[in-house]
Computed example of a mutant assay.
Amino acid sequence: MEGATIHGDSTMTLGDITFQTASYKLSPAQAAFFKTQTGIHDDEDLKRHILEVQAKAYKAAPYPCIHRFGFLRLNLSNFAVYEHILKLGRERSDAVLLDIGCCFGVDARKAAADGFPAKNIIASDVVEEFLQLSHELFKTTPASYPGSLLPGDIFDPEFLSIATPSVDVFPAPAIDLSSLKSLSPLHGRVSAINAIAFFHLFNEEKQLYIARALAGLLSAQPGSVICGLDNGAVEKGTITNNLSGVEYQGFAHSPESWSSLWDGEVFEKGTVKVETKLAEIPIDDKGHLMTMMMWSVTRL
């Protein structure tokens, strides 16, 4: 496959890429999860199934995360805030979990498997084919999986309009997520938002736009949380990264600039708790590292 792809505001040349199954590797936790979810317990059969879905997804949108099997990661369940999110699902009758920029919605499926009510989970991506392939990957149908899969562009105000963060701490009436055609009806209703590997696809201006858009969705009830994992830097600015020989540039916030964006610019200062952590994370089996920032924004 030849050519270039633009993912958000990050540009990269993919060149002549041949899928290499050597990069396919499931951790014990991933293997157990996908075997349980798909009902495919033979390792080679599972690998064949995943490769078939991967090929269809790459044809729909040739993103590096598809080529490098990034869509198989159980990212959210590795966050310290994950148990808190599951607790919100258990204790709030109106709790809604939004998985934004979800690809196949693997984090959403994992949360459902771990007890967050699936009917209260909505996974959204701009690539509609990814959502269709979610059912193929997990061998489900809209009838068998009660979670909602909603395609849409977060920059389209018809899909999600900007709203001032809610100050109403009273629980909102339940809403049928399966009936939604856009995210705007969820203003002030969402208890938890998973935005892992989403913000860093865009430039600084668009990251602020997304933050405002998601803030308008978040419930004012204390403990409501937005979390993510993105490219980070000691000082905010343009960074250059290399993914398996593919070089791209993008914008990265520092912990300080990210905290001030949420606490004081997006939300009224002092009304949220922002936690950030920079870490050097391996991105391949050759020892290449990437500076990433794990973060969460919790309403007080």
Rank of each mutant, 00 (worst) to 15 (best):
G232E: 10
F159N: 11
L214S: 02
D156M: 01
E204Y: 07
I210A: 01
E204H: 12
A163I: 07
I210P: 00
I239W: 03
T238K: 00
L183M: 06
T164H: 08
N231K: 08
F138N: 06
V169I: 15
E205C: 01
V234W: 11
L180E: 01
K139I: 15
A213E: 05
K236P: 01
A172D: 09
L218T: 08
P173C: 06
S166W: 05
L208A: 11
I210F: 02
H135G: 14
S184L: 14
T140Q: 08
S148G: 09
P173F: 07
S178W: 02
P185L: 12
F198V: 11
S179G: 06
L208F: 02
E158S: 15
S182T: 12
A195S: 13
G147P: 01
R212E: 06
G228N: 06
F170P: 00
V225Y: 04
K181S: 02
I226S: 13
S191H: 05
R212A: 12
L208E: 09
V169F: 00
S179M: 06
S182E: 00
L137R: 02
I196W: 00
S144A: 15
V167D: 04
S161V: 05
P146Q: 15
P151D: 07
I162Q: 05
A211P: 05
L218H: 08
I226G: 07
T141I: 15
V234F: 04
L214K: 05
C227P: 01
A220Y: 10
L186W: 12
A143H: 12
N231G: 11
A143W: 13
S224P: 01
